[in-house]
């Protein structure tokens, strides 16, 4: 059913820290690794080692140069995946009922057995979160690792999305953004997390933490100069002679 739930019990999503992300693409790689065998498998690659390589990925990292102060710019790495919006038009435009938003946790999923591959959902998503699998003829998208986060075969510590688990800098956080007391909600409040394209009204669940303000000078750490005292004896006499 492509009508949206009025309210979801939880709002599971990601918080992505643009200050910490170093653009290593580990999240991209682990996402591909898990999901090519997961709920939406396979993530088909076409011509992977040749010219015109193409394939399905749920997570992509862009890199931008941002002029954020006069005469200064900084590099920002920007991971982008499905934002599991509260009002996802990708779901309501679906003519077959293949796309749906879960009432329990708000995750947006595609039932690949119902998808006719009309691609309209990918047109309706402003973020480019959905990618078409030309080999399977159906649309694919991020599942928020629905097959990990509830997976009792995994250790509890591993029941998070693959991208979050693998991030070496801790730039990705997973949790319930509908609960104001959750760690992710507190993080968003503390760091001034933002929605992407809020003006379009999709109400994305995922939040982005903007880079921290630039520091123009290093703080004084109080380190005193500790110089090596000149040696005495014969070597001292040679040193003085040569330093003259």
């Amino acid at each position: 059913m492509t009508s949206l739930p009025g309210k979801t019990d939880k709002k599971l999503g990601l918080v992505i820290d643009l200050d910490t992300c170093v653009g290593c693409h580990a999240c991209v790689t682990n996402c591909k690794e898990w999901n090519t065998g997961g709920h939406m498998a396979p993530l088909t690659d076409l011509n992977a080692y040749g010219k015109g390589a193409d394939g399905v990925w749920f997570n992509r990292v862009h890199t931008y140069e941002v002029d954020d102060a006069p005469g200064c710019s900084r590099t920002v790495h920007f991971p982008k995946s499905c934002l599991h919006c509260e009002t996802p038009a990708c779901v309501t435009v679906c003519p077959t009922g293949a796309s749906y938003k879960r009432t329990s946790d708000g995750i947006v999923l595609v039932n690949e057995d119902l998808c006719i591959g009309c691609k309209l959902c990918s047109w309706a998503c402003p973020y480019g979160a959905r990618e078409f699998d030309v080999f399977e003829g159906v649309m694919k998208k991020c599942t928020l690792c629905v097959d990990r986060i509830y997976n009792t075969n995994l250790d509890e510590v591993d029941r998070v999305p693959a991208c979050v688990l693998t991030c070496p800098t801790g730039a990705r956080h997973f949790g319930d953004l509908g609960d104001p007391n959750s760690d992710v909600s507190q993080l968003v409040a503390a760091r001034g997390g933002v929605d992407l394209m809020p003006e379009l009204g999709y109400k994305p669940t995922n939040k982005y933490l903007p880079p921290r303000p630039r520091r123009t000078a290093a703080a004084d750490v109080g380190a005193t100069a500790e110089l090596v005292s000149a040696p005495g004896g014969f070597l001292g006499w040679v040193d003085r002679l040569l330093s003259r």
């Binding site: 992509r60 862009h62 002029d67 920002v76 903007p210």
Partner: peptide, 29 residues
């Protein structure tokens, strides 16, 4: 346009330039 690069990335700043794509070839998007 319906949105700007500023609102699309949530980044402030007067100019935001794409310096590297996530992929080397044209993808579905």
């Amino acid at each position: 346009p319906a949105a700007t690069i500023q609102s699309a990335t949530g980044l402030g700043g007067t100019d935001i330039r794409s310096v590297e794509w996530p992929h080397t070839e044209e993808n579905f998007l």
